[in-house]
Design a protein around this nucleic acid. Structure first.
Lengths: 255, 255
DNA sequence: CTAACGGTTACGATAGACGTAACATGCGAA
DNA sequence: TTCGCATGTTACGTCTATCGTAACCGTTAG
């Protein structure tokens, strides 16, 4: 059976069960057949998975037969946010930044080859940038570039895909230009993106450092371009400097 | 093997993997051997589970070798709070109540034979009641009684344990008295607990209803007894009436 | 030094998870 | 009505994926 060559001691049943969880998370109220089809598995297998997950409260079945994440998931989720220092410490800081900047603030980490949003805070105004915990973005576009910039050179090169897909007209797609931009980011310590990911948005971002000085995450403020002047970007930047310092300090970093 | 007789199509490997998750959630930074011992499983089995979970980012290993919940868990957790109507709708209401009452507010559901806290909001004052999402309490003591009161009679009797353990001197331990109290709660529509669960605490609670009028949850405000007058309890009660109505309405209930 | 413990690997035996196939049910079209 | 095509479910025999044992490293402690 020439199936998956590389597999390091993974329990398949658990692995598909996790896939099922992810699927339910991504498609609320989805049904057995959908999941089976999306994952390319047989229905009985998925059914068994779902039953097991339901048994433990990780998913629940609506009276119409759709599946949702369950209460145990809430419990595990809040436990996670208490256990992960980064989130625990960053939470209040993000809130405070969102209040002061009156724009959306996000905390992102690098998850393998992508940037992953793991926390956010949104201002209470009608028009605002919408952030989603769990959303992934390429590392080379927009604010996420900071996560790339401070990486050891070999790893950085490894993580840069051969071709840089352009998300908007302003996305940097030339590798050389990107490398140069990363250099600038490392020098100045921050990154400003104007419409690289989404035409109408601008954002400022800064690195967050761990106890050993390594860059663990990036915080950024994202705003609609039309209401954001240069002066605002400057303000956001200094707010972020303060916020990043606070989080980094909480993680044990002393410059 | 005279082990567990009743089991309805549960995948064991997944089941223990979930147990492992729970264990990691409850004991941050715990180690392989601990988990294996707590669960009464062999080390290799748990190691395989952990590896699989780590592979998918549900847990992560600290450089010291302890295990924590991982980033994927955060994602699933926030997905859960967006999917579960009750939490989604109640969230802002709880926040607003906590602000007005300036005391801790909790949302609880019945999970089998226990009350389970699935959301909370705490005021920003130094001395406050500490609530934990995921904490379980018996159904018959304190605020949780509302969850019992509105249940169909047969189920209610089934869920009452033979002996009511007293948590404090004020816990109701006589079954007859409890039944009478439940009657009162049903009649008045709310429940006040004075030190039934913890000596120094008082709390008021009300039922939250689903689209069909069934009681899905209970919200309560808990406060230190020493700073809570009768008038405060009254205020909390009317705040809760308002809040419960808002949540119930959000769930599709029209009296 | 040995003993004890945590983590890990190897491997062969077997329980248990697997897919196939068939059944149940509902819905809509022909 | 009957047929077709979905979804969800059960049954069952096959065989594989998962299990525990045992042995192996390291490190710590005594």
């Amino acid at each position: 059976m020439p199936h998956n060559e590389i597999k390091a001691d993974i329990i398949q049943s658990v692995d598909v069960a996790i896939s099922v969880l992810m699927e339910v998370a991504a498609n609320p109220d989805c049904r057995l057949s959908n999941i089976a089809r999306s994952l390319g598995e047989t229905k009985p297998r998925i059914l068994r998975s779902l039953r097991t997950l339901e048994h433990r409260g990780l998913v629940q079945k609506t009276h119409e037969g759709g599946y949702l994440l369950g209460n145990a998931m809430l419990v595990l989720g809040t436990a996670a946010s208490m256990q992960i220092d980064l989130v625990k410490i960053a939470g209040p800081v993000l809130e405070s930044l969102a209040l002061k900047a009156y724009e959306t603030v996000q905390l992102r980490i690098r998850d393998n080859t992508e940037a992953l949003c793991i926390a956010k805070a949104e201002p209470s105004r009608d028009l605002r940038v919408h952030a989603v915990v769990g959303r992934r973005r390429p590392l080379y576009a927009g604010s996420s570039k900071v996560l790339l910039a401070f990486l050891p050179e070999d790893l950085r090169n490894e993580l840069l895909p051969i071709s840089l897909d352009s998300m908007t007209a302003r996305t940097i797609t030339e590798r050389a230009k990107l490398v140069q931009e990363l250099e600038t980011i490392r020098a100045t310590g921050y990154c400003i993106s104007r419409g690289e990911v989404s035409e109408q948005l601008v954002s400022v971002s800064l690195p967050v450092r761990g106890y050993d000085g390594s860059v663990l995450a990036a915080i950024n403020i994202a705003a609609p371009a039309f209401r954001t002047q240069e002066a605002d970007l400057d303000r956001y930047r200094s707010l972020l400097v303060e916020g990043a310092a606070k989080i980094s300090a909480g993680l044990g970093w002393s410059r």
